[in-house]
């Protein structure tokens, strides 16, 4: 086994996903299969290969430091479940 049910529960919590016991079992099995599959890469000798973090090569494209217009406030807030016309309203996050 590459992953335990406890680890799956932990990751689910970090991602704020509510999963029941049945789902935890299913996902553990599925994630385990995926991790075992990825494990095949370990059979390749990568001693002299630099770690790759991106599929693309080449340099970052830069943006010049020039102000562009922002969204009108009502557009910025349009998708919010709740707002007061100026700010997003959320359940209080501090005790």
């Amino acid at each position: 086994m590459k992953i335990t049910e406890d680890q799956v529960a932990h990751v689910a919590h970090l991602a704020r996903l509510n999963i029941d016991e049945k789902e935890r079992e299913v996902f553990t099995k599925q994630l385990d299969d995926i991790l075992l599959y990825i494990d095949m890469l370990n059979s390749v000798d990568t001693t002299d290969v630099a770690p790759m973090t991106h599929a693309m090569e080449g340099t970052e494209t830069f943006r010049e430091d020039v102000v562009r217009s922002s969204l009108p406030v009502d557009a910025a807030l349009a998708n919010a479940p709740d707002d007061d016309g100026a700010s997003f309203k959320v359940p209080k996050v501090i005790e």
Partner: peptide
Amino acid sequence: KLIHDESAPVSYVDL
């Protein structure tokens, strides 16, 4: 930035 309401269980978000 978060601004917490004094009287209601609400916080305001300014991005």
